[in-house]
Amino acid sequence: MSVQRKVRNTTNAAIFSRNYPTRLEEAVELGEVTHRASKVWRAAEVGVKKHGSMPLYYATRDREGMITHRGEITSIVIDPEPEDPEAERLEDLVSDDDTYSQHNSPPEGYARLDRTNYLVEDCRALEEPFHFTELHKLSDGTPLDEDYSYQPAYVYQHGTHPE
């Protein structure tokens, strides 16, 4: 079964990603902020359309592997078009301090850096951070291994068991 289909049919699906500590602090402070990714997050788009939002777990890019923040993706636009009202709304919610384009470049063969724009709301620091290896992959129910680096990772929500 494809990841998109699993996300659509699973009520406890979530996403795991990494971000910079300053971006996570900013997301908490602003309450809603647009983050961007160079990859297409198609399964996340499916999940938001089907379920209204998708939980997002963030580990910091310091490589310690601790998930320190959780938020909700409430809107997502793939390959944003300039005249799309939702894409414009998300663009308006990119922080003035966003340095994404300074740290990244478009994937090979693509002109755009921001293939996926997604709105994160209700981002908060976890009272009890946990290691990302405690999350289980949606694809096969196995835990993320220590060297897991692919982003985004589609997982079961923390503390829930694979169906």
Results as ranks from 00 to 15, higher is better:
R61T: 15
D62T: 03
D62S: 06
D62C: 05
D62G: 03
R63G: 10
R63H: 14
R63E: 14
E64H: 12
G65N: 06
G65V: 10
G65S: 05
M66N: 08
M66R: 05
I67Q: 02
I67D: 09
I67F: 03
I67G: 07
T68M: 02
T68E: 11
H69I: 04
H69D: 13
H69V: 05
R70Q: 14
R70P: 00
R70T: 06
G71V: 06
G71H: 03
E72N: 13
E72I: 04
E72H: 10
I73K: 03
I73D: 01
I73F: 06
I73P: 03
T74R: 13
T74I: 01
T74C: 05
S75C: 00
I76A: 01
V77W: 05
V77I: 13
V77G: 12
I78L: 15
I78S: 01
I78C: 08
D79F: 04
D79S: 09
D79G: 02
D79K: 09
E81T: 05
E81Q: 13
P82D: 10
P82K: 04
P82H: 01
E83W: 03
E83V: 06
E83K: 11
E83Q: 14
E83G: 07
D84R: 06
D84K: 04
D84I: 02
D84L: 02
D84Y: 10
P85S: 04
P85N: 02
E86S: 00
E86Y: 00
E86N: 06
A87L: 03
A87E: 02
E88L: 13
E88V: 12
E88P: 00
E88C: 11
R89G: 01
R89N: 08
R89T: 07
R89W: 08
L90D: 06
E91D: 14
E91L: 12
E91C: 04
D92L: 10
D92A: 15
D92K: 15
L93F: 07
L93E: 07
L93K: 13
L93A: 07
V94T: 13
V94D: 02
V94A: 03
S95H: 05
D96V: 06
D96L: 05
D97Y: 11
D97I: 07
D97A: 15
D97W: 05
D98V: 08
D98A: 08
T99N: 13
T99E: 15
T99I: 13
Y100S: 10
S101V: 09
S101I: 10
S101E: 15
S101P: 00
Q102H: 12
Q102T: 11
H103C: 00
H103D: 15
H103E: 14
H103R: 14
N104P: 06
N104C: 09
N104K: 12
N104M: 12
S105K: 15
S105Q: 15
S105E: 15
S105M: 09
P106L: 12
P106W: 11
P106V: 10
P106I: 10
P106T: 11
P106C: 10
P107Q: 10
P107L: 15
P107D: 14
P107K: 12
E108A: 14
E108F: 08
G109W: 12
G109Q: 11
G109I: 09
Y110V: 01
Y110F: 14
A111R: 11
A111F: 03
A111P: 00
A111Q: 12
R112M: 08
R112Y: 08
L113K: 10
L113G: 09
L113A: 08
L113P: 07
L113M: 13
D114L: 03
R115T: 09
R115N: 12
R115A: 14
T116M: 07
T116W: 05
T116R: 01
